[in-house]
Amino acid sequence: MTNTVKEERLKKGLTQVQLAELVGVSRQTIFSIEINKYVPSVVLSIKLAKAFGKKVEDVFKLEAND
């Protein structure tokens, strides 16, 4: 799965810490999501999409091997 969390975060002018506080997770979680090392849960995905004002499927995309 790929995501555009970093791009959307930068568009909003947020730091990783600010986004983490916004959605209630640690900065390390945001970092690992951005580098595609961690796949967030449905709840966290929805929270992130809401924080960006986007749909979940616009932020997170399935890859061919998923």
Partner: peptide
């Protein structure tokens, strides 16, 4: 941890 979230638990 200081912030306990799903990634920490995983």
């Amino acid at each position: 941890e200081k912030v306990e979230d799903e990634m920490v638990q995983s």
